[in-house]
Simulated scan of single mutants.
Amino acid sequence: MTGTGSGDGNGLRLCPRTRRLRRAGYALDAWSLAWSEDVTPLPDGPDLAPVAALRALHEAGPVRAVPVGVIGPKAASPRQTEVAHALGAAVADLGLQLLCGGKNGVMEAACRGNAEAGGRPIGLVPDEEWDAANPFVAIPLATGIGPARNVLIARASFALVAVGGGYGTLSEMAFGLHFDRLVLALEDAPAVEGAIRCADVEEVCERLARRFLRLDAG
């Protein structure tokens, strides 16, 4: 995912008239998620940090719901479950769409947190019927392709966040990097060259906001 916007993310403002996110010389189209030249004066108001700018953009009107993938083990530890729940809620708070494998463990905890925060999590289940999804998945999609659905999650997401995990999570992270996705790691997620290990959910949100708004180099 590429765009013409670049830089450190400073100077972001939301134009109330056009409902576009602006920075000096550029405007972001909320549907194509691409920056284009705009030399009109910036609107009055304070500069917004990337996370605040993303929230404001979603509050202003429709934004293309390119999903962020949350991945992790079905047999999750209590700590992984806690972090995944917080992550799911944070994704909803940012206005982003959550996508996961739709099963148990980290996936269920992330879906529960997301749903409780007002999100509608999507689950790409490996099974042949939609009702194999965990009860917090709002949009269950049966793939019938087993573990191969990991490729679909990696390809469909603009970024992946791993909370712990084993070989299955490792494969999703590797596919994500192969597809030039932003891959973030929390807790004891597998160490993969190219993946960025984050200290907490707050750092994940900052990196997701920057990537979604095309403010980083990716």
Rank of each mutant, 00 (worst) to 15 (best):
E128G: 01
D131N: 13
N114H: 15
A34I: 00
R210L: 11
G105D: 06
A92D: 06
A30R: 15
F175D: 11
L42R: 04
G164F: 01
G95S: 05
N150V: 08
V163T: 10
L124T: 03
N10S: 15
L152Y: 11
K103S: 02
R22A: 12
A217W: 09
D127N: 06
A174Q: 14
L141R: 09
A199K: 13
I139N: 10
C198H: 03
W31G: 01
P43A: 01
A90Q: 13
Q97G: 01
N104H: 10
G45P: 06
G5H: 09
C100V: 02
G3Q: 12
P190Q: 07
D188W: 02
L57N: 09
A76I: 06
P16R: 08
R55D: 05
A199Y: 02
V106N: 07
T40E: 15
G61H: 09
F158N: 00
I71Y: 04
L57Y: 02
P67N: 04
V68M: 12
R112D: 11
D29Y: 09
R23F: 00
M1C: 00
A191L: 13
D188P: 01
S6A: 14
E116G: 01
R64H: 12
P147S: 12
L48V: 03
E129Y: 06
T40K: 12
R112W: 09
L96K: 11
V151N: 11
A30K: 05
N134P: 05
G5A: 12
L215M: 10
H58I: 09
V151F: 12
V204H: 06
M107W: 02
E203C: 03
L124A: 06
